[in-house]
Amino acid sequence: MFEAKMLQSSVLKKIIESLKDLFSDANFDCSSSGITLQDMDSSHVALCYLKLRSDEEGFEDYRCDRNITLGVNLVLMSKILKCAGNDDVITLRAEDEPNILTFIFDSKNGERVSKYDIKLMEIDSELLGIPDTEYSCVVKMPSHEFQRICSNLSQLGDSVTVDCHKEGVDFKVAGEQGSGAIKLKQNTTVDKEEDQVSVELNEAVTQSFALKFLCAFTKATSLSDTVSLSLTQDTPIVVEYPIAQHGYLRFYLAPKIEE
């Protein structure tokens, strides 16, 4: 038996909303330590990795007697989650050899209980081994700032060049009709930690990425006040949104390589 009771249905809603356009079908791997999801987009350029730890406070109850994989169409799941109120407590439930995933939404006042079942799918997805490496540069910034940068620069071109150096980070776009550049200076003196821009630099990195994917990743902005970008030359960028009281959602994007 698998049963996970999440105190905030809005968290799961936001996760699925941020994933469903790039990653339509995905396997939720459930174990006693929590729920993970790894999926590639159809062009095999981007990868998402979600981790929700069972021992974090976001779960009121968590039980997973044996490891199970729940193959779910995320577009359908998003439709089901739209039936839940933002403050509802949400319970996910499945048997040990499941064909069905059950969603139970309990309203805060206890007056309404909704139950939805969806059929599970057999999804043959390739799991990749993501190496645990140290990155040359880690930039932490307000998540809405990153969203704005991606959105602004995507008006002018398809790819952004991210240039991390010791003063800060530059985002540049050069399109056929014009070009743009946004410089972010390191700023760790502002009061609120979530408003800070910090750059941990071991080595300078200059790398180009497709804006289409970065813009898609920023659909996760409402999950977290901050986002971190981890870069190493000629390797995928990691865009990580911490999820309070649960874990994190990471996106990996393969770089554009100069010919």
Binding site: M40, S43, H44, V45, A46, L47, E126, L127, L128, G129, I130, P131, S159, T161, A174, S208, A210, T235, P236, Y252, L253, A254, P255, K256, I257, E258, E259
Partner: peptide, 14 residues
């Protein structure tokens, strides 16, 4: 600018 690489080129299949 540049050629789009695949994520599978960086992370091994498990």
């Amino acid at each position: 600018k540049g050629t789009q690489s695949k994520i599978t080129a960086f992370f091994p299949s498990e």
